[in-house]
Nucleic acid binder design. Sequence first.
DNA 1: TGACTCATGTCAGTAGTCTGACATACATTC
DNA 2: GAATGTATGTCAGACTACTGACATGAGTCA
Lengths: 148, 148
Amino acid sequence: MSQGGIDLDTSLGYLLKQASSALRAAMEDVLRPLGMTITHYSCLELLSQRPGLSGSELARGAFVTRQSMNVLLQALERDGFVTRPAEAAVGRVLPTQLTPSGRRSLAQATEAVRSVELRMVGGLTADERAGASRILGSMLRSLQEAPS
Amino acid sequence: MSQGGIDLDTSLGYLLKQASSALRAAMEDVLRPLGMTITHYSCLELLSQRPGLSGSELARGAFVTRQSMNVLLQALERDGFVTRPAEAAVGRVLPTQLTPSGRRSLAQATEAVRSVELRMVGGLTADERAGASRILGSMLRSLQEAPS
DNA sequence: TGACTCATGTCAGTAGTCTGACATACATTC
DNA sequence: GAATGTATGTCAGACTACTGACATGAGTCA
């Protein structure tokens, strides 16, 4: 039987949460002037790199439920940033595409987010960045395994 | 002028978000059977290690607003997990304490969360854990600096 | 002392996300 | 072919955490 709690000063989990929270706050700060939320930006960025993604796939990529993504997609479609076919060609999947307007909107946001990411890794060497990538990947895979 | 978006496959920011999201999901999975949310657990764990913290300090430690923490504290007080003086001894600060009941409730949650953290760092060597701590700390400090 | 700034606790309203539910379409299995 | 399981899109309601706002108390400085 272990004694005592989890030492927050040395816990990797708590540090991970701190870093992630700071990143989220920094991204919100630069996206707010553009009238964009993080989920909003994530959706456009995903569509830019993987055109034709379905709503469910976008939801997984942006770390929200497909219901939440659906609400966002309807707004983005209404505002002319994305297009979806009225009916599914196969199954129920509705492949989504960026419009030119959506691409323009994304371009500003990408620059803003890039500046945040550059600031975040600014103090790291190339080796440290590679190490961070490898270690975070290992932590991610371990967490995704079946719980003991 | 930079061209193209942010490559999600190599972005440290996206990887950080993935890892944090997986950690959150894993913690929710083990805390749900105990009828506890992450914020709920975080509040108790903070109080265990730093008795007498104010609501605002707890909010910062748990990464929520002081308004949200206030709602939670009122519920925890009502249910007998924490106690707060009816009036502030100095300023407006209401120092919060765990009750024995709160301590018992926390003990189970701590074990559950510890198992998640152990699984997360299970594939890492001691050197890698130290490296992760140093690198995440650097990223956190960089993000907390004034925006360029 | 008085003006100013800052931090805290709290109330109210709002926005974003979640859970629950249902219908539909494909894949797998017997 | 029928049954089952899995994945998707969507609607509705509930909930969580947020922003905005206000009052109060302490510290700072002229």
